[in-house]
């Protein structure tokens, strides 16, 4: 399916309420669209990977695993989380970063150009295909995390990065995660569940060995296969990094970042009224009839 056909399927105001379905791996985020809302699927496929440019053009319906495999052939990757079944468009629309955000940065910084279908069923371009760009307003940032409430992603250009030469996960039961954070230079990830600390070290083999040595005084570390997986029923929330030390009950916290995975939903943060006014105006400006993902809301 080409981009225009996708735009045609989304249609204009006359085509009524519509939602776009990715891999359904985070369908619940922001609430499910109203029952009976017509569903469309974004086009898929890796359009063009330019290894020498460190960018890739990919259709939004492409599974992230397919994209990652294509990039891996040239020793590259993106910062997007690798969630089986999830699509590139879905991951961007939700905007949650991977557990390696501490070292790799947030998903929002990876989207260079977006072609999306607006509420009138027209294809719109935001951003540009090069790695640095301040030509006009940064709509790409707004689309990431907008849950398909402003437009439906059809095709994107993402920034790539070299895959690290070496990547190891370690765990220790007796290590203070904040001391770990201070002992390392830009680790890829530090997770903590109140007892166990997990660390991901990446880079040149010699540096990984050195960083492992820097950890040796802080705990009894063992190699593990990867990060702990929060149970599917847990929710994800966000706080200030400094607030993580006060967590109680079961949780997995991303140290230095502030993302928390836990079974209980924390109370909502106070809302800034002026920000909300702008946010509502933005939604109305992009989707005057409220046909894009009705029932789903960006908090």
């Amino acid at each position: 399916m080409d981009l225009n056909a996708f735009a045609g399927e989304v249609g204009g105001a006359g085509a009524g309420p519509v939602t776009v379905v990715g891999g359904r791996t985070e369908w619940h985020v922001g609430g499910a669209p109203h029952p009976g809302t017509r569903q469309v699927v974004a086009p898929s496929g890796v359009v063009e990977h330019e290894p020498a440019e460190l960018t890739v053009r990919v259709r939004a319906g492409t599974q992230i695993e397919e994209l990652d495999a294509a990039l891996a052939r040239h020793g590259q990757c993106t910062v997007m989380p690798i969630r089986p079944g999830a699509t590139v468009g879905g991951l961007l629309a939700v905007g949650h970063s991977s557990v390696k955000r501490l070292g790799h940065g947030p998903v929002r910084d990876t989207l260079l150009e977006a072609r999306f279908v607006n509420a009138n069923g027209r294809l719109v371009k935001a951003g540009g295909p090069v790695v640095k760009n301040v030509s006009g307003f940064d709509l790409c940032r707004v689309l990431v995390g907008s849950l398909g409430t402003l437009g439906f992603l059809a095709e994107v250009v993402l920034r790539c990065r070299p895959r690290p030469a070496r990547s190891v996960w370690l765990a220790a039961e007796d290590a203070d995660p904040l001391i770990v954070l201070r002992a390392l230079y830009r680790p890829a990830s530090i997770l903590w569940d109140g007892r166990t600390t997990w660390v991901c070290l990446e880079g040149a083999p010699g540096d990984v060995v050195d960083q492992q040595r820097a950890l040796s005084g802080i705990g009894a570390w063992r190699a593990v296969d990867g990060p702990p997986e929060p149970p599917p029923a847990w929710t994800r929330s966000s706080t200030r990094p400094s607030a993580l030390v006060n967590l109680t009950g079961p949780f997995i916290a991303e140290i230095g970042v502030g993302v928390v995975h836990a079974p209980v939903v924390p109370p909502p943060a106070p809302v800034d009224e002026s920000r909300l006014v702008v946010q509502q105006r933005l939604k109305t400006a992009f989707d005057p009839t409220g046909r894009l993902n009705p029932g789903r809301a960006v908090s």
């Binding site: 970063s97 929002r108 995390g145 402003l150 706080t239 809302v271």
Partner: peptide
Amino acid sequence: LDAEPAGYDLRGAFVGS
């Protein structure tokens, strides 16, 4: 200051405006 502030990324829109 938290990892994933609520709402649309209006911060991102303002930068470069």
